[in-house]
Amino acid sequence: MTTGDIGLWGVPIAVIGGAIRVSTPILFVSLGETLTERSGRINLGLEGTLVIGAMTGYATAVLTGSAWAGVLVAALAGAVFGLVHGLVCSLPKVNDIAIGIAMMLLGTGLAFYFGKPFIQPVAPNLPAIPLGWWSDLPQVQAALNVNVLFLIGLALAFAMHWMLRATRPGLIVRVVGDSSDAARAMGLKPAQIRTIATAIGGAFAGVGGAYLSLYYPGSWNEAISSGQGLMAVALVIFARWNPIACIWAALLFGGAGALGPALQSVGVTQGYYLFYAAPYVLTLGVLIATSSPSRAMAGAPGELSITK
């Protein structure tokens, strides 16, 4: 029988599969936030950007019949949201955290309002690459059905890491993020650079939203995000503003989220509410374990409003 019971082996396979399936939007949002925060600004509004990306992506895919057009429009919508956040925060004495919360509410509100007619229609899904072809087990095949956006996210993380470490634009972002004074002395315009970084970060979050609505779970409704955007912003601290670490953080979070359903499916049924808290407990645990009373948070950009 091909769809047989594989018993306890189902748990690690489901966790790996879940990590790949669930982590992509978290990865995109945390990469976007990493770029934004490395330039010295916090954008808490990415939850709203994620939802607006999910809605615009889904709506575009429904209307045009092309999932990739949806991804593109979601990225554009995300960039617009990032741009607005960036421009407003460039004004003097504007608190980026307050604006972020406002943008979050605006994004979800707009998405709910304009997304109404798109709850029912079915949009074309993004393609997946069957990397599990070598296995006869349908469970393995399903777990390794990897979406293209996940691979793009991985590539983006490495590219961003290299960009920040070894290129001139990366240096500019880092200087602006660490010291506005030094940046000005170099002849850079911090506000402008932060606005660009926030807009690009917003575009990333928009793509993450398109993944939610166009691939997994692959449906637009108002509860589609359920706080993943906020969690991803928090994961940036967990990842210490390092794009490569964002991959691990997102995978860990996604895999931990798959643990609850997977354990129930093999008969570990007691205390599932506890298992559902696993991702959050894990994040807290690692943060506590890696924090130190004697030094400041390693990797934190100096211009962030939470570190100043």
Binding site: T3, G4, D5, I6, G10, I13, A14, G17, G18, R21, V22, P138, Q139, A142, A143, L212, Y216, P217, G218, S219, N221, A223, I224, S226, Q228, G257, A258, G260, P261, A262, Q264, S265, V266, Y272, Y273, Y276
Partner: peptide, 27 residues
Amino acid sequence: QVIFTGEWSLAVKEAEATNALADAGCD
């Protein structure tokens, strides 16, 4: 096989639960 998601509307968890059921051989 039953899987509780804990909430009335939680799209990602519902999708994960459905995948877990399919993995467990529910047809």
